[in-house]
C-alpha cells in the first residue's frame, strides 16, 4: 500500500499528463467519426452563438457581393423555369415533391486543414438532422454532420472522410468523389469505369444513387485525366464553388429517405 502511494506521489505529474493526453486523443478520434462528435462540435449552443454574432457584423461589408450572387442564381432559375413551361403556383398542399430545400447562412467555414467543417445557422428546430445534402447555387458543398437546436455542423466536401456519389454529366458512368487534402479547389473522382469517355473540361455532377443528394447537382469540371493505367483511375475535378468564399446555402431534405432505407435494410436481412 505504501508503495502505491509512493508511486502516485512520485509520478503524479506524469500521470496527470498521461490522463489529459488520453482525453485529447479520444477527442481527436471521435471528432473524425461521422456523427459521433457531439461534445466538441461547433454546432453547440455556445460556439454557434458567438460565431453567429461575429458573422452578422462581418456580412455588412459583403452585402453587394452576396446580393449579386443571389440575383445571378435567381436569373438562372427563372430562365430554366421558362424553358420547362411549368408555371409556379402558390399551392402548398401539393406535396408530391421528393426533396425540400431550406435556406441557411454559413457562420463559420474552414478550408485549410485536412478535415474541414462548416457551421450553419439552422438546426433541429428547422427539421435539420444528420446526413442531409448541403449545396448552393453553384454546386455541392457538403453533408450535415451533427445538429443542435439552432446550429448544424456540416462536413465539407473538403474533408478526407467525405464520399459522394458522382457521375459524368448526362451519362450513367458513376464514380466516388473524395478529397486528397491538398488543394482546396480540386477534388478527386475515383472508381469511374475506364471506358467512360472523359475529356478535360467535362462536367461532373451528383449521381443520385444515394439517399442524400438529388440527381444532377453540379460539382465541377474535369481538370486532369489519368493517362496511365492505375487501379483507382483517379480524375482531378475542379470545383465550381470557391470553397473559401461561401455565404448562403440550401439544405436538402429527402422526404423518401426513411422509406428507401427501410426497404434497403429489408433486403439485407
Amino acid at each position: 500500500m505504501q508503495q502505491i502511494v509512493y508511486f502516485f506521489q512520485r509520478y503524479k505529474y506524469f500521470l496527470l499528463f498521461l490522463f489529459l493526453e488520453f482525453i485529447s486523443l479520444s477527442l481527436i478520434f471521435t471528432n473524425l467519426n461521422f456523427q459521433k462528435s457531439k461534445f466538441l462540435a461547433s454546432s453547440n449552443f455556445f460556439v454557434g452563438g458567438i460565431y453567429e454574432k461575429i458573422t452578422n457584423t462581418k456580412d455588412y461589408f459583403r452585402l453587394d457581393e452576396i446580393n449579386q450572387a443571389l440575383v445571378e442564381e435567381n436569373n438562372r432559375l427563372k430562365n430554366q423555369l421558362e424553358g420547362t413551361g411549368v408555371t409556379l403556383t402558390q399551392d402548398s398542399l401539393n406535396t408530391n415533391q421528393k426533396f425540400t430545400y431550406t435556406s441557411a447562412k454559413i457562420i463559420n467555414n474552414t478550408f485549410h486543414t485536412q478535415f474541414n467543417f462548416l457551421t450553419i445557422d439552422i438546426g433541429k428546430q428547422m427539421g435539420i438532422d444528420s446526413e442531409m445534402a448541403v449545396i448552393n447555387g453553384k454546386g455541392v458543398i457538403g453533408i450535415t454532420d451533427h445538429s443542435s437546436n439552432g446550429y448544424t455542423r456540416v462536413q465539407s466536401i473538403l474533408n478526407k472522410n467525405t464520399r459522394i456519389n458522382a457521375r459524368l454529366k448526362n451519362t450513367n458512368y458513376f464514380g466516388t468523389l473524395s478529397w486528397d487534402g491538398k488543394d482546396y479547389n480540386t477534388v478527386q473522382l475515383v472508381d469511374i469505369p475506364r471506358q467512360a469517355p472523359i475529356k478535360v473540361g467535362d462536367t461532373i455532377e451528383t449521381g443520385g444513387k444515394s439517399t442524400i443528394f438529388p440527381e444532377a447537382i453540379p460539382i465541377g469540371t474535369v481538370a486532369k485525366v489519368n493517362e496511365t493505367l492505375s487501379v483507382d483511375n483517379k480524375i482531378d475535378v475542379k470545383l465550381f464553388n470557391d470553397m473559401s468564399n461561401l455565404k448562403y446555402i440550401y439544405v436538402i431534405k429527402n422526404r423518401d429517405k426513411e422509406e428507401i432505407l427501410k426497404l434497403e435494410n429489408l433486403e439485407n436481412e
Binding site: 496527470l16 466538441l40 461547433s42
Partner: peptide
C-alpha cells in the same frame, strides 16, 4: 498542465479540430 489543457480545448472548440490543440499544449 491543467490550464494548458483548458486553453488548448478552448481553441479546439472553435476550430473543429477535436483535441489537437489540447494534446499539443499539454
Amino acid at each position: 498542465i491543467f490550464i494548458s489543457f483548458l486553453l488548448g480545448l478552448g481553441v479546439d472548440l472553435f476550430s473543429n479540430t477535436g483535441g489537437i490543440h489540447a494534446f499539443a499544449s499539454v
